[in-house]
Amino acid sequence: MTTTLLPFDMAQLLNSDEAISEYLTQVLADGDTDELIRAVGYVAKARGMGQIANATGLGRASLYKAFAAGAKPRFETVIKVMHSLGIDLQATTQGNRP
């Protein structure tokens, strides 16, 4: 008997603001820069890469490339995409962590 594996698409799980917030919070807490880039890409894909491209003025194909595994997008690009997604970053001191 053979087992067929279906492709996993993280973007399909990011179907609410709460799921997106929790996911990005966890990725930020882990501190892996490459994973953060991929995570922002997954969120952008979940919300619609075409819509994000229109909102940021960046090309759709360029966005896919910028957030692919191993990519090193400019910080300006990451912030532009996050703002178009309605996501803000906040800084807290370690003493304020729950």
Rank of each mutant, 00 (worst) to 15 (best):
L6R: 13
D9L: 12
D9V: 13
M10H: 00
Q12R: 15
Q12Y: 05
L13D: 09
L14G: 06
S16D: 03
E18D: 14
E18C: 02
A19H: 11
I20E: 12
E22Q: 14
Y23G: 06
Y23Q: 06
L24F: 05
V27C: 07
V27G: 08
D30T: 03
D30E: 15
G31T: 06
G31P: 07
G31R: 05
D34M: 09
E35C: 03
L36I: 01
I37F: 04
I37T: 15
R38Q: 12
A39G: 10
V40Q: 09
V40E: 08
Y42C: 11
V43L: 05
K45C: 03
R47P: 02
G48S: 11
G48A: 09
M49H: 04
G50V: 12
G50R: 10
Q51W: 05
Q51K: 15
I52H: 07
I52G: 09
I52V: 15
N54S: 14
G57K: 10
G57P: 07
G59F: 05
R60I: 09
L63K: 14
L63G: 13
Y64C: 10
Y64W: 09
K65R: 15
A66E: 07
G70N: 14
A71N: 04
K72T: 12
P73R: 04
R74L: 08
F75W: 11
F75P: 00
E76N: 10
E76R: 13
T77N: 06
T77D: 01
T77E: 04
T77C: 05
V78Y: 01
V78N: 06
H83M: 05
H83F: 00
S84R: 04
S84M: 07
S84V: 06
L85R: 01
G86T: 01
Q90I: 07
A91V: 14
A91E: 07
T93Y: 01
T93A: 08
G95A: 15
G95P: 01
